[in-house]
Amino acid sequence: MTWRNQAACRNEDPELFYPLPASDASESHAKSICQTCPVSNNCLIEALTSGAPDGIWGGLNDAERRNLKRRQTGTAA
């Protein structure tokens, strides 16, 4: 069993996690699912490791993941 089998989003429409740029409500809904997820950290690690450019992963959007990665590596924006 992989972490994906335990994900809170496993039965959700994947499109929910790829909201349009101006869709704050959709992004908020996706993030609220991530907040209840027992494996959201695994999901975030997967996105950071693979360099996932789009979508909500582990409760963070692409810009938030880029900022997190910059902070972790100590590089400037």
Rank of each mutant, 00 (worst) to 15 (best):
E64Y: 08
W3M: 06
I45M: 12
A22K: 09
T2K: 11
G59D: 13
P19M: 03
P53N: 01
C9T: 13
K69P: 00
R65S: 15
R66A: 14
Y18S: 07
S32T: 06
A22D: 12
Q72P: 01
R10K: 15
Q6K: 09
P38N: 05
A8P: 05
S26G: 13
A52N: 10
L16S: 07
E46L: 04
E12G: 04
G58M: 09
R10A: 09
R70A: 11
T49K: 14
S40F: 08
N61W: 00
F17E: 11
L60I: 03
E15M: 05
T2N: 14
H29C: 06
P19I: 01
R66G: 15
N11M: 03
N42R: 07
W57Y: 15
E12A: 09
T36V: 03
N41C: 12
I45T: 13
T73S: 13
L20C: 05
E12K: 04
C34L: 07
N11K: 13
A22R: 07
Q35R: 14
K31H: 04
K31F: 04
K69Y: 06
L16G: 08
N61I: 06
T73D: 13
N41W: 00
I45L: 11
P19L: 02
C34V: 13
T75S: 10
E12F: 01
A76F: 15
E15G: 08
G51V: 02
P53Q: 04
E27C: 06
G51M: 02
E64M: 08
A25F: 05
S26N: 11
P14Q: 03
N67Q: 12
P53V: 05
E12W: 01
I56W: 03
A22L: 05
L20A: 09
W57S: 10
Q35P: 07
G55A: 04
N61Y: 00
N5H: 07
L60F: 06
D62H: 11
A77V: 07
D62I: 01
S28I: 06
I56F: 02
A76N: 13
D54Y: 09
K31T: 09
A22H: 06
N42A: 13
L44D: 15
K31A: 11
L60W: 02
L60S: 15
A77K: 14
P53Y: 00
A25V: 10
C34M: 03
C34F: 03
C43L: 08
A30N: 12
L60A: 14
R71V: 11
G58Q: 10
H29Y: 02
S32D: 14
S40Y: 07
A47T: 12
L16P: 03
I56S: 06
E15C: 00
I45G: 11
M1W: 13
P38G: 14
E12C: 06
M1A: 15
W3C: 13
N61S: 10
Q72M: 09
I56D: 06
T2Q: 11
N67C: 09
R10L: 10
D13M: 03
C37N: 08
R66K: 10
N41F: 02
P14I: 00
L60T: 15
R71L: 12
P21W: 01
A76D: 14
T75F: 04
R71N: 11
F17S: 11
D62P: 12
R70C: 05
C37L: 08
D24A: 12
Q35F: 08
P14R: 03
D62L: 05
A47P: 05
G58T: 15
N67P: 00
S50D: 12
A7P: 09
G51C: 04
A76Q: 13
A8N: 05
P38K: 09
R66T: 14
